[in-house]
Write a protein that binds this DNA or RNA. Structure first.
Lengths: 338, 338
DNA sequence: ATTAGTCGTTTAATCGTTTAAACAAAACGA
DNA sequence: TCGTTTTGTTTAAACGATTAAACGACTAAT
């Protein structure tokens, strides 16, 4: 049961390796006699021959491997995307190698280097903050690349995203419709465009409805200090003067951290405070008041991102495309009018 | 900025490719003049040369790639292990490719085939039910292999596990110490040894304390029908006659499903019912009564599994080893004496 | 009978490395 | 001075596949 090479098959069938390759890849149809073809196929089967993909990759100068870099693999969003992308790619004959940048530009750079040295054919990336320069370098090297989730307006790259601005408007409208007047937001302190868009959607919608958006109702959180920053921000918002009656967490991680605080503080949800989160979390489902959240079309993102990358790899000169998908608001108990 | 090969470096430095290889790999120390070595290193740096790992792999007959097959990547246990294993392997110069078998023997077989065709140097596997035959085949082919989490007593393979029996005893003892007398268990209907061990630990401990373990307090759940089966089992246990006063969920997934039911049924925890789970979940932390759970030493498992595999790959003839780590019980509000 | 096509198959180069063996030049020993 | 080492470098084969080009044996056309 040793490793069999094409040479073994050739020997066993009494032909040259070239012929074996042709037959097994269905090249040169019609030029090869059915008798030898059959003999070769039989020999291959009997030896349980599997072509060595490393050798193939070297010769063909492509590995049929995709490098996927997610923001943070411990987040459901990332792990779901990883699952979907892997499966989608597998269907099309590609293997996906997954790396988690953990929201760190350095780590992201290291992953890109690692994957490049492994000769991936292309990248699918949810970029961390401050990675524009790296991505620009990749683009200049003409490495096939698709961004998702996060993207940079300044970058000429393929991208699959959702309309974060509009989703945020929807969230805010929803809270307003539920009778909330003092809506707070918890957001990251970040340069990432998609997160700024979430903030912008919230602000614009409030303004449109002539509702106040005082600084005290906007909490900025540093990503390296989520727990404390969220707690501090919430305490400000819940202080007696101008108390918030609703809070919009712009990510699931923020929401999870926030809910812990709210539970500790014994805040009634949705009675005292309505809550909405961007993205899902296992936890939301069995919170006593199941959380209202913005659901991203994960399957859509995953399949779109893969087919976009593959089409770019097949025709490297093709135009840059960008696709914007719709997120939907799943309204549940945590934001019911009270 | 095109792809540079060793040939380009050789040309630029005015030497043969062999010399470049020797210098860059620090072979033949002392045989090479410092002057040319420096010239080669300079040329390599200027061209930003990175060796082509595909070509290396082909020549060296090893890819420095490890195939990791987890049971279900959407489970925190798996994704955490994946993160740790990837990082641990990276430190030692290996790349990890991750596959999720989704508890399905067929999928597991397909992943093994896929990874083999990609010439992985070895496997780290959390085997699904009914995969013994496949694993046996791998072993016969002398593919380096380490099992974790799940393992088969009949299989002569390296393994890293925890003592599931003992952990279950601890859980049960803990509940007994909290004054519980009618302790139920929710377990999978499965042939997997480690899960049977959890059940055995529970039963033995009850018996040792001369407590009853009637069939009505043992709920079996089919993995493809978790929600309904858990609900049904719980309803039986909570029916008036011989009502359970504690429940031990043998996995986090079962616990999550169970908690949803318990919340719906308005069961007071730990007042009416104490609850303990095996493994963690994000949700457990902010359940109104944070859940008591069995915490596995993930970092320990991850690093052990990697170093075990690497040492087997380095000396293929080495003895089979198996390591059993300790899990600890994290006691919290959900199982407090009432 | 010569030329030109088909047909089925083989030859050999190639992808980018590694590495044993060969080699030329310099240094050494007698 | 001539053989023997040592030193620094090159040659060339190998890994396992793909594929353009060459090839010999027929067949068909002129």
């Amino acid at each position: 049961m040793e490793k069999k090479s094409i040479k073994d098959v050739a020997e066993k069938a009494g032909v040259s390796t070239a012929l074996v390759s042709y037959v097994l890849n269905n090249r040169m149809q019609g030029r090869i006699s059915e008798a030898t073809a059959a003999r070769i196929r039989k020999a291959a089967k009997e030896l349980n021959y599997q072509p060595n993909r490393i050798a193939q990759s070297l010769k063909l100068q492509k590995t049929r491997t995709i490098g996927l870099i997610v923001a943070d693999i411990t987040n459901t969003f990332s792990s779901q995307i990883a699952r979907i992308v892997s499966e989608e790619a597998r269907k099309k004959g590609y293997l996906v190698i997954i790396g988690s940048a953990d929201e760190d530009a350095q780590k992201c750079a290291a992953l890109i280097e690692l994957f490049l040295s492994r000769q991936v054919d292309g990248f699918i990336i949810a970029a961390a903050d401050n990675t524009e320069a790296q991505l620009k370098k990749l683009l200049k090297q003409k490495v096939p690349l698709v961004l998702f989730d996060r993207y940079f307006p300044s970058l000429k790259a393929n991208a699959v995203t959702i309309d974060n601005y509009r989703a945020s408007c929807t969230v805010t409208e929803h809270l307003i419709a539920a009778g909330k007047k003092r809506i707070g937001i918890i957001a990251y302190e970040t340069g990432l465009f998609h997160l700024q868009e979430r903030l912008r959607g919230y602000k614009d919608t409030l303004q449109q409805h002539r509702l106040a958006a005082p600084a005290s109702l906007t909490g900025f959180v540093n990503i390296d200090n989520i727990e404390q920053d969220v707690a501090r921000a919430l305490d400000v918002m819940l202080s007696s003067r101008g108390r918030a009656d609703a809070i919009y967490f712009t990510s699931n991680k923020l929401a999870v951290a926030g809910l812990k605080v709210l539970v500790e503080r014994n805040i009634a949800i949705p009675g005292t405070l309505a809550v909405v989160s961007f993205d899902e979390s296992d936890s939301f489902d069995f919170f006593h008041a199941p959380l209202t959240y913005v659901k991203q079309p994960l399957a859509g993102i995953g399949s779109e991102v893969v087919s976009m990358l593959i089409s770019q790899m097949d025709m490297p000169a093709s135009k840059i495309t960008s696709k914007v998908l719709d997120a939907i608001l799943v309204a549940r108990a945590s934001s019911q009018p009270s």
